[in-house]
Design a protein around this nucleic acid. Structure first.
Lengths: 205, 205
DNA sequence: ATAGACTTGAACCGGGGAGTACAATCAGCG
DNA sequence: CGCTGATTGTACTCCCCGGTTCAAGTCTAT
């Protein structure tokens, strides 16, 4: 039974992943289930065997992708828990990692799909906010508060500081990546992170 | 003839505006030409009489809307040309105005549609970049450079300063407005503008 | 080996929407 | 008034796709 169940789980996973990639490149309305099935290496009725219809398929795919996206970002925040002697350097590293994630394929696709379908799937807002930017901001604010207590920062309002850090970091990305259509060099990302950290530290350091 | 031509122009305008509002609330694929015609107070064949097909209709509607959006934003920048004694106050006012525009209906819809259809209409990128954030940033950088020359600012890198100003200003908006689904109180916008100007000035003032 | 569950390919139904054809109407202009 | 060109409503064709059905095949467990 283990193997059978495992097979089912694998199929389901494959379907969800395939669905996300197809939705990402076609949009919800233009994506046809046939293509999703092909992308997942599966027959069309099998898709309907696992997910009842196109809409729930979309929701599940979005939720799964949002969850892994948040996990990646939270993991990227980790170095701030054990900053070395050079706080600016760790901040820059973390910023760089966040930038890479934010400019990466899954994040961009997720953002595009959210913006695109938020009017037709209002419940996506709740689903995704569960794994949305608020969570990241809160985690970051926690780190900043700890650093302030340790006397290495002067972020009296950690929530605001966190919000402004991510704004400084990610704000320029929209224009630079041409809404996610251009991929940025790693060096350019590094420069963006350094610039953001520089003014963040003159304001809150 | 004047009246006839004028009538044609009016019809065309009405069609473009109706098209944008319908596209905005339905998305490209789900918007049907019939509904656009109804919104514009016009018959379906008339739509095809002016714009050859749905795709070009979409492109023209997007371009028109992007242009007026940029014009509004540039106008909002105007006070920076004649700042009063209190630079922080004028910056805050300008920031507030930009926030209101950015969080407003047309801007949100435009952003949503761009993100949604950028993969299916790659040329939208060029069309819209012509009226996109780069233009705004450049105008803002010009103002900041003048202010620096006048000794009222220390923005040695005006382009970077402008980019970071808009980032600080507009970055928090995405999370706060829930991707444009929630409308913010004017007071909240004001607070956002004040916070942004505060850290902007401690960094570049 | 055999039963049972899952998958597969193909065909099918139903609906919705793009784009067109056409006849009727309306508006300006001589 | 009669002409010209745009506009309108309607109806039509064509295509695409969501969702289902079904018969045939595959795999696993006992």
């Amino acid at each position: 039974m283990g193997s059978t169940t495992r097979g089912r789980i694998d199929k389901r996973q494959a379907i969800l992943e395939g669905a996300f990639t197809v939705f990402a490149r076609q949009g919800y309305a233009q994506a046809c289930v046939q293509e999703i099935a092909a992308e997942a290496g599966v027959a069309k009725p099998t898709v309907y065997n696992h997910l009842s219809d196109k809409a729930t398929l979309f929701r599940h795919a979005m939720e799964a992708s949002a969850r892994t996206s948040l996990e990646e970002r939270l993991a990227a925040l980790e170095p701030l828990a054990h900053p070395g002697d050079d706080l600016a350097a760790t901040l820059t590293d973390v910023g760089h990692a966040l930038l890479r994630l934010h400019a990466g394929g899954r994040s961009c696709a997720l953002r595009r799909l959210l913006y695109a379908e938020i009017t037709h799937f209002p419940d996506l807002l709740e689903i995704t906010n569960q794994y949305g930017p608020d969570r990241l901001n809160q985690a970051l604010a926690d780190r900043l508060a700890r650093l302030t207590l340790a006397g290495r920062l002067r972020a009296a309002e950690p929530d605001l500081a966190a919000e402004q850090f991510t704004s400084l970091l990610l704000g320029p990305l929209e224009a630079r990546t041409r809404l996610g259509t251009r991929t940025l060099e790693d060096a350019e990302l590094r420069e963006l992170a350094e610039a953001a950290v520089r003014t963040f530290l003159t304001a809150w350091g």
